[in-house]
């Protein structure tokens, strides 16, 4: 069982959360201008890295808010969590655990 830190509620069991996939995959600003390949890239292609991954989580059985996390996809260890409106922490500095308290 993973322990996940919600930036709003604190650390809870994984079973309270839903996974939202890759983070920062913004909907194209000008949809009409996209080629089929660009649409495919937005809809279907994901980075799927082996290592640090920026991803979305939802505290679905808690405050029900979305937030971002950086997690290692091999050790499954969370490097840090950050709010949707927060600046993106660098992946390099993500190796140190930043607690929700320090972040906000």
């Amino acid at each position: 069982m993973l322990l996940i830190e919600c930036p709003y509620c604190g650390t809870r069991d994984e079973s309270e959360f839903s996974y939202g996939g890759e983070a920062h995959n913004a909907r194209p600003a000008d949809p009409d201008a996209l080629t089929d390949e660009q649409w495919a890239d937005y809809i279907f292609y994901r980075q799927n890295p082996k290592g640090l991954h920026r991803e979305l989580w939802n505290h679905s059985s808690g405050c029900r808010r979305w937030f971002n996390a950086i997690r290692d996809t091999v050790s499954y260890k969370f490097q840090c969590v950050y709010k949707i409106e927060d600046p993106r922490p660098e992946l390099a500095e993500a190796n140190t655990t930043i607690s929700a308290g320090e972040k906000s």
């Binding site: 069982m1 993973l2 069991d13 994984e14 079973s15 839903s18 996974y19 996939g21 799927n48 082996k50 991954h53 991803e55 997690r71 996809t73 091999v74 050790s75 499954y76």
Partner: peptide, 13 residues
């Protein structure tokens, strides 16, 4: 398991 991962193990839930 809902999240992506390359460790050949999953979650207790």
């Amino acid at each position: 398991d809902s999240y992506t991962g390359y460790g050949q193990r999953g979650s207790f839930s």
